[in-house]
Design a protein around this nucleic acid. Structure first.
Lengths: 204, 204, 204, 204
DNA sequence: TATGAATGAGTCTTCATTCAT
DNA sequence: TATGAATGAAGACTCATTCAT
């Protein structure tokens, strides 16, 4: 773990403020440097360019989240394969959601930047990545349910939409100014709603 | 004498392309003019400024949609008031959704611009307006259901989230490249999902 | 006298307003046309260019004033030559001043434009013309007094400054928002002051 | 390490030339940069905007002059209050004038810019400030004289005009191309003229 | 008489980035 | 480590003027 330079820290702090206020595209490096009481050159010593600066604020939480989700979904898949064919519930969903929300709140600002202020940067479509992961998982799960309930296969668009809906709901939780506790409470409602919704699709 | 100036049309076409590609903020008027093979001055003869140009592509469908939604919700409210207290269903929802989706597809590009490319313009929060309208309507409907099912009042945040979810689902329909027909089919699934979700919230 | 077109009149009126507000340089022909509810082309039918438009508002009063002053000074010169050598007073000055102020008030707006709003146009140094005329007259008068009072010749710079002072005082009268009556009253003070000042220069 | 950046100096020099030639409004930053052989960006590194560039040429002398005048007038006021009631002369006026003219010549160009080339900038009415200061002082002095000579109070418009006349005379001195020495000589005439003029107003 | 579309050089200003020191 | 001067292209927008109709 490297000893963090004070200048670098000042820059990161100022950058966070600026990006939060104006979003990636409209943020001004000049303005960040001034706020950090640091020269332009200094910024370019610590960061390659604007994108790198933004990345320094969000990359790690983003990658971690990806990893967590992948691992979690892999584990759930195993569970599913090991369980008897007639077991087909959403019991794990609350836990998954709790994990995701918890992690998001741990790096609250990074995720706000990532999910609502990244327009113009290479992260602007980062939501899609989360959607893709979730989508893959939902695809498998949905097929399992189709077999179990003997219904038609749910089409890909619907799966995509459902995944997007799920991610969107998480995004909402950190976008709106609520506390971690309220978010978790709210998450319960979300999960309840989503599960009921899923069953609705399978019902005739 | 051409009723619609050819230059104006060329500009609008080029503008649409540019805004679609880069979004409002990053779009360049210079680039638009070049693409339209027209001088800067010409653009400013037809449009007041960048925002006016964008508005010309977007304003009318937006206003119409607002009007339609307001009218529709008002009408539904009356229906609700006139119906017996024990009637409490979602029968109108499909129709509402159909109307909205139909209108959106009629001005497909305008709504794509409005809902996903307006960042930086005065329309950047236009989704919120739709959410607000829907929210108000949901609030009333939810209270009615609470009374009917003798459950606790659904809290405001949940109502807000539900409205946002609904709008988000519509936005998805025109954002993803699907035909009007597929969108309408998809919409059925959405409505089914949403209704089931609603009931899920009221269930113990 | 030509039958004045209504459009031309509207343009002149709008132009006067615009020039008064913003001055020649910052005035916008577009803005004038819009205010006059007339197209750009129309303006260029009636006027050659911006300068011509401005000129149409001020040229005539300007020329008239020049003529009046020239004539008046010529007449005064004759009077001076015809009068006995020991007559050397300022008795005519009040009349001259009255004439000038009266004429200025008759075309009040034109002179305000000319004297305070002409920056950027060919009239921007029009004051100098008036100064020159007055200067020439003062030169002669001062020399006469020098001979009479047996003093040194008043140097050219002083003459120039005195002429400028005189003109400046007139300009002040129409620049500040006072009525014609108050201006004339004020003019008496000015003349009294100026004459006393003159004598002060000749005194030891 | 140069204390005064050469580029900044070049810019200031070019700016002075340009402003002198065309006045604030018509001066072009592009032209200034070209003349200084410097890029646009460089200008904006040293100066915030056009007004700041102009201000850098002008602000300090302006403020100093204000201070000097205020201090001087305050001092004169004290003198007046401490002196016997029958003392009522203009003995200080020459000194005041000398000070003002001296200071103006010390920053000759700055005052030319300020007084004749500032149209369009925030300094365009700076003359008025000087007039106001002088006016306030004249008001007091005139009232004193009225009491002493037992005449009617001189009205405000006259006081304003006199102050303006005084300032105008100073402006003339640096506007016309004369040396500091000639200006000081000339100033004597001006003071003599003004004093005689004042008395003229009080005479019957 | 008048329209109104079109020109194109010009305005000030902002920006991310570079580099010698 | 950091400075701070400098780049130069690009941004939106304004303007007086022209001209075919």
């Amino acid at each position: 773990m490297k000893l963090e330079s004070q200048t670098r820290e000042k820059l990161l702090k100022a950058a966070k403020t600026e990006f939060m206020e104006k979003g990636y595209a409209k943020a001004s490096l000049r303005s960040i440097c001034k706020q950090a009481d640091v020269t332009t050159g200094a910024l370019y010593f610590f960061f390659q360019d604007k994108e790198d600066l933004f990345g320094s604020l969000v990359e790690e939480p983003l990658n971690q989240m990806h990893m967590y989700m992948k691992q979690h979904y892999m584990w759930e898949l195993q569970e599913l394969n090991n369980s008897p064919m007639d077991k087909c519930d959403f019991s794990e969903d609350s836990k998954t959601a709790l994990m995701i929300v918890s992690y998001m709140f741990q790096f609250h600002d990074a995720f706000v930047l990532l999910l609502t202020k990244a327009n113009g940067s290479k992260y602007e479509n980062c939501t899609d990545e989360f959607v893709k992961l979730t989508e893959a998982h939902y695809r498998i799960f949905a097929d399992r349910m189709s077999i179990y309930y003997k219904t038609d296969r749910v089409d890909d668009y619907t799966i995509h939409w459902l995944a997007h809906l799920q991610i969107f709901s998480f995004v909402q939780l950190i976008t709106h100014n609520i506390t971690r506790e309220d978010a978790i409470k709210q998450m319960d409602t979300i999960v309840k709603f989503m599960i009921s919704g899923w069953f609705g699709i399978y019902k005739q």
